[in-house]
Design a protein around this nucleic acid. Structure first.
Lengths: 233, 233
DNA sequence: CGAACTGTTGAGAGGCTTCAAGCCTAGTGG
DNA sequence: CCACTAGGCTTGAAGCCTCTCAACAGTTCG
């Protein structure tokens, strides 16, 4: 059944493994744990909508989310997959703007909500926290500009190969070459900048060439060198 | 003649108008002015190359630059135009990585170079400096994701209209509707995600429809509402 | 079992790129 | 002052890539 609410376990509320909080004093950590609230989100749950006002940012302690913007004609553009260890929602907080993206759960997730005030206090009292925050933003910026260049200049086939490689890098910690992230064809399309029909065709092509193996949502990468060559990496 | 080196004037080394430095103490400001070096760059000069190691970041006190990445087949993807009041080069500094883009002058510019050490000291001692730095990064991130969504989902015609509107917003302070930035067809293409021939055709189409007026590099926007409609804004 | 959703496949249209040729313009040197 | 050259701009034609539409197959779930 769906309506059994499960409360976060202790490991799901443990923020100590976040690099971002590594330099906090004991006192700051206690304060953080007091202010923070945590919750479990099911697949397809929406953490926040584009246009909503956030009251804090979120630390992901478990699961996978997608972040997307809604473009023309309501088509979603996925620009980031976030997982355990990542933080989301900080951008609109920093700029004091409404959320510019929607965060939706792909794989059951546990999130910790850090209120704006706590964020502000940390920012003012712990320069290393600020420094790391800036690093996170700059890293994302780097990836965004890379992504832009790829999507803008490459063929869809090349981009799909690139997205698969990116997904492997992020969601195959055990190096099984099987992507540990359940994505529909449409989601893959929304991350690649195309339509689901085209993804179907290209995945079929890759399969026939024994570059990948597809079983429903599950994708296994068989021939990484060829995939990299296609992606022009 | 070209080889007359002009040294920066006083207003071209004046950082006090930068929001980023508004909260500096007198002492910090003095230090900043001692550590900083300034230079004039001519059109087509390159401030830094993709892959180079930066020793600091740059404040633009005059002129216009383009920031681009070199994609497959050497095609450049312009992802940002920067002008007086903007800072560039901070991303690779923050992440301690090599520059991920090239900064090239479009309109004669004056830049102030702030060494990494000075940046670090400010970051550690002035939380408002850090906060504003984070805001700048987040604002760029916002624009990058918007840009991605547009380029990925819209027709080239729509994107070109959007780029023209963005250029008006940035480079038409006096509201003359004439873009104060000299861009070649190829540069417009590299910002829009297409090729120069297509830009030519589309500008011609816009001209014939009296939406814009083109005279060489000079573009005047005549019908903003229609342009906005085309850009789907 | 039907409904709703997702995935697959085919055909056709249209946007966009590529290639090639010719034009225009600005800057150069005689 | 004028011819010349290089580089950017324009234009046309051909063909590829990608999208759209539509029909159908599979899957999941109540």
């Amino acid at each position: 059944m769906k309506n059994v609410i499960r409360f976060p376990t202790e490991t799901e509320t443990d923020l100590s493994c976040f690099q971002l909080f590594k330099t906090l004093t004991d006192q700051e950590l206690i304060r953080l744990n007091l202010d923070m609230t945590s919750r479990i989100y099911e697949r397809k749950d929406i953490v926040y909508h584009e246009g909503s006002r956030l009251t804090g940012f979120y630390c992901i302690t478990k699961g996978i989310l997608k972040l997307y913007k809604t473009g023309t004609e309501g088509k979603e553009q996925i620009f980031r997959f976030a997982q355990s260890g990542d933080i989301i929602g900080y951008r609109s907080l920093v700029c004091r703007e409404l959320a510019d993206a929607t965060a939706k759960v792909i794989k059951e997730a546990a999130l910790c909500h850090i209120p704006y005030n706590t964020f502000l206090i940390l920012e003012q009292n712990n320069w290393q926290f600020s420094q790391y925050m800036l690093q996170i933003a700059c890293q994302e910026l780097y990836e965004a500009n890379n992504y832009l260049t790829s999507i803008s200049q490459k063929y869809v086939k090349e981009n799909l190969a690139e997205v698969l490689l990116l997904l492997k890098q992020k969601f195959d910690p055990d190096n099984t070459n099987t992507l540990q992230i359940p994505l529909s064809r449409e989601e893959l399309a929304n991350a690649t900048g195309t339509v689901k029909e085209h993804v179907t065709r290209l995945l079929g092509e890759f399969s026939r060439q024994k570059i990948i193996e597809v079983k429903g949502c599950e994708i296994k990468l068989l021939d990484l060198p060829t995939l990299k060559r296609i992606a022009k990496h």
